[in-house]
Amino acid sequence: MAYAGLSEISRGSLAVWRRNLDAFIKTYKVNFIPPFVEPVLYLLALGYGVGALIQDVDGIPYPVFIAPALVSISVMYSAFFECTYSSYVRMYYQKTFDAMIATPLSIEDVITGEILWGATRGTIYAALMIPVLFLFGVIDMPTSLLLIPFAFPAGFLFSAIGICFTAVTPGIDALNYPAFLFITPMFLFSGTFFPIGILPQTLQYFAFGFLPLANIVNVNRAITMGEFSPVLLYNIVWVLLVALLFFIIGLNLMKRRLVD
């Protein structure tokens, strides 16, 4: 149990990551659709539909306001769902984890590989959305390319949280609870479609203290707006620390679930 399982991680975790990448590439046609289609749908319905009713948000056109949130949401969904439903299928139905731990890989390698892959998938989705958003003229280049490197720690955070739920869920259906009770509210109340500033003060503190997406949207919006302020440092450190925390919790919960 040295270093809460971190010392049991080896380069083998990259082989797990690579397995998932290979599976993703094999079915790329299905996998590459969401990051292209989703932003278009959201922009048309919300950006230009709802946006027609709203003049602007603090002087920013509504489609431009929601663009960084769309990237954040896509990272959240792709990483979280990868490390909940998809990881659960690999762990429970396909017995892929069992096959892996019969090789020199440790459980920690397997879980680390899963989380790294979830983060990577989130990053791929963010990267694929950027040209679409740029074509709609709602983000600026080249500063917005910074969305890509930040998608990785953001994806890592959601993957690690996802793995924690996967480790404790009694079955695949029960994963709907965190999806509905945690992810969906966050999707709505994290400064995504309206500024956090219009919430009561206490809720603002709650959002930046406890909601991963609120912190991530804040950073991504600063990136696309090209306006950097000291609070971003707080958001970034928060994301990194909480990611590490859930990573360690996830490793240990999974170890408890899988070792007998």
Partner: peptide, 17 residues
């Protein structure tokens, strides 16, 4: 591993080693 072919099952497993 049901996501891969017979041959890929072997090569991917080899990566774990």
């Amino acid at each position: 591993d049901p996501d891969f072919t017979t041959f890929q099952n072997l090569t991917i497993y080899a990566r774990y080693f």
